[in-house]
Design a protein around this nucleic acid. Sequence first.
DNA 1: CTGAAAGCGCTTACAG
DNA 2: CTGAAAGCGCTTACAG
Lengths: 333, 333
Amino acid sequence: MSTIKDVAREAGVSTATVSRVMSGSGRVSERMRERVLAAADRLGYRPNAMARSLRSETTRTLGLVVSNVLNPFFTAVARAVEDAAHERGYSLILGNADEDPEKEELYLNVLLERRVDGLIVSPARAESPYLAEVVEEGVPVVFVDRHIEGIGAPVVRADGRRAVGELVEYLVGLGHRELAVISGPPEVVSGRERLEAFVGAAQQRGVPVMEERVRVGDFRRASGAVAMRELLALRERPTAVFVANNLMALGALREVRRAGLKVPEDISLASFDDVSWFELVEPPVTAISQPTGELGAAAARMLLEMVEEGRRPRSLIMDAELVVRDSCGRPGR
Amino acid sequence: MSTIKDVAREAGVSTATVSRVMSGSGRVSERMRERVLAAADRLGYRPNAMARSLRSETTRTLGLVVSNVLNPFFTAVARAVEDAAHERGYSLILGNADEDPEKEELYLNVLLERRVDGLIVSPARAESPYLAEVVEEGVPVVFVDRHIEGIGAPVVRADGRRAVGELVEYLVGLGHRELAVISGPPEVVSGRERLEAFVGAAQQRGVPVMEERVRVGDFRRASGAVAMRELLALRERPTAVFVANNLMALGALREVRRAGLKVPEDISLASFDDVSWFELVEPPVTAISQPTGELGAAAARMLLEMVEEGRRPRSLIMDAELVVRDSCGRPGR
DNA sequence: CTGAAAGCGCTTACAG
DNA sequence: CTGAAAGCGCTTACAG
C-alpha cells in the first residue's frame, strides 16, 4: 500500500503538498493539484485515516451504541443516525450492547480508544458510572431513547406516558377491568416509565393492576413468551395485556397462538413500539408508535452540534402515538 | 486525555514498559506491572487505538458492508458476524450500502482508509471493479449471501435453488398453473438465482411463467407493493406469487390486503427469507428459510482465517429449506 | 526485565 | 504557493 511519500516522490513534490491536495485544504496551484492527483491515481493511493487522525486529533467518526440491533426500533434509529452523519461527512461505528451492561462498557471503550468524535448511546441500565466518567471527561455524548439520570448529556426520546394513558383509557372504555402488563426491566428508564405509566393510569381509573399480573421481561423476544405463558396460567387470567416493546410482543403473540387462544376474543393485546408487520398480523396489533426516524436524525444533529460547535443542546422529548387496530376487543367472560 | 508518556512519568518507568504492560506482550516484572496499572488507573488512561494501529499495522477491526440494514436477514447476519468477531477480540464496523453501489463504494473506501484487517461484503451488484481492485491488492475479503463472479474471494451463502424447485413442485402439486414472481434485481446474484430457479423449475414442470408475470423489484418493501399491484391488475391474474425476499413480501402482502383480497383463497403467496413474524401473519407465510446465523458466523470465521493465518479458505454453500405454512392453497377459479 | 530511540503516515505551523 | 521539519501516541527491535 503506497503512502504519502510515494505519491510525493511520484509527483515530484513535497508530502506537504500532497497532503494539502488530498485534504482539499490550503492553497495549491492547479498545476500541482493535477500532478498530485495523477500520481495518487497511478499508485492507487489510499490515505491512512489513522495517521491522519493521530495528527489532526479528529476522526470524523461517530459511535452509536444501541441496546439491541435485532430490535427493529433500534435498526431504524441506527439507519437514521447513519444517514444524518453521512450527510455531514461523518461515518458511524455501530456497537451492539445486546442489553448487557458489560458488553456496553466494552463497546464504549473500543469506541473511545478509537477516539470517535462523539457518542450516541441508548444505555442498557439506569446507571453507569463508566458513562458518567466519560461525559465528565468532556466526550460529547447524547442519549437516545433511554437515558441515565444525573448524567449531564442531552436526551432524545419519545415520552410514551401520554399514549400509554390513552391506551388504558381505551381498554377501560372497552370494558376491561383485568389488566396485565409485560414490562421491560425496571432498571431501564423506558422500561420503568412504560410500566409506571400503565399501572398509574389504571389505578387512576379505578382498575388497579394486580401484582401477579405484572410480569417483567428483558425486552427480548423469549421473555415475552415466558411472561405470556405465566399470565395465561393464572387462575384469574387477565382480559387485556400491554406489552412494553415489539420483540416481547412477538414472543407473547406466539405464545397466545400456541395456547390455542385467539386475540382479541380470548385476550386483548397491545404493544409499545409499532413495527411494519403489526398491521399484517391477524388481528392487526394495536400499538404505540414512536417517531423512530426523527429520533435518530435529531440525535445525530444534536451530537454534531456538540462536536462541531461545542454547544450543549437541550434535550428533546417527542410524543408517541396510540395506533388503534384490532387486537383489543370487549372482554368476553 | 492522558497519554502513554503521562503514565510512564506517573509510574516512574519508560513508555516501553507501559506499552508492554498495556498490551500484555513481553515480559514485565510483577512489581512494574502493578505500578503501571495503578498509574494508568489513576490517570484514567485510555490507549489511543489509532497510534497503536499506525505502529503495529493491525487494527483488530473487521468491516462488514451489508446491502440493507433494514432487512432482518442482514441484521441477523451482522449480529452473528459481530459475535464471532468479538469472541476473537475483533471489533466490527458496519456499513450500510442501502442497495446502492455508490454508497457501497464510499463505505468500502472509508473502511479501507481505516485499515480494517479484513472485509465481509454483500455486494449491491453483480460487478464491482472497485472491489476487484481491493481483492487484487491483497485485502482479505469474504463475500456473504451475494458474490461477484470473477473476483477471487471466498463466498458464504445459501443456495436457494433446490428449495425454490421444491416450492414450485409444491405449488404445481396444489394445482397452480398461473405462476408469478416478484424478483430481486437480476444484476444481483441472489436476485438472478432465485428468479432463474423459479422460472426454470416451472418451465421444467410444464407450467412456464408468462413474461408479464415476472416483476422485478429492488429487494425493498415498496417495490414489492408496486409489483403486487401490477400483478393484481393483470387481465389474467396469477394464482400464486413467489416473492424473492422478506421485505418485498411485506409490501406485497400489504397490497393484497389493501385490494381487499385474501391469501390464499384469492391468491397464494410464498416468500424467500423466513422471518420471525411470518408465522404470526394470517395466514402464516410459506417461506424458504436460510441459516442466517450460520452464514454470518462462517463468514467471520473464514475471514479471520485469512487475516490471521494468511490462508484462503474454500467457499461455503449451505442449503436453504422450504417451510410450508398456510399461505398457499388450491387455486380457486 | 527495562529503557533509549527510531519510526508508523500523516498534518501543520513556520519560513521563504 | 511550496517545502523542510516537528510531532501526534504508540510499538518494537536493539542493547544492556
